[in-house]
Amino acid sequence: MAEKSPTINRRKFVADGLRVAGAAGLFGAAGLLTMRRGGEPINNLWQIDPNKCVACGNCATHCVLDKSAAVCKHAFRMCGYCNLCTGYFEPEAAELTTGAENVLCPTGAIVRTFVEDPYYEYTIDEPKCIGCAKCVKGCIAFGNGSLYLQIDQDRCMHCNECAIAVACPSEAVRRVTAETPYLPKDGDPES
């Protein structure tokens, strides 16, 4: 026993040394990865680029959440305040009234209010919005394109791989930084 113990001690020492080196290596690699700035900033939130969105409707159906994280936003500064809003009315609406037969939104999430002749204001009742993009499509096709989809950071679960991004036909869903969690169409997130 007495002869063996130095060997065991040495072996133990070497093993410990290797472990510490391994741990140091792991931390070092982690540090390098963390410090390394790729071409992109740290993008860890998902967002829709409204300039790429084609309003296909996949956001409503492909989000892992029952209630999609994508909701309609309205860039009021871009809106034409049209009486005949093609985001609000069916393409061939017979009358410009809020009757269900004329309105595009399936959940009635767009509120139309009279401002002054001939202008109407359209606001989104977000809790009702299911992100189907019907209004967005209408607004892009015939209007100013002031209605657009964004991922609500309150609703989003921040999946490592966004199911909407996988299903998006136009690569419009991408990661953004926490500093710019929204990509508003008229360029003003907060003001």
């Binding site: 029952d66 269900a100 037969e101 399936p106 959940t107």
Partner: peptide, 27 residues
Amino acid sequence: RDAIKMKLRVLDQNLRREFFQRQRLAH
């Protein structure tokens, strides 16, 4: 036309109610 409109409005309301009820049920 007027009859269809009334029908559509009632149906729309029912469908919406059904949709949100189902969503709540799932939750």
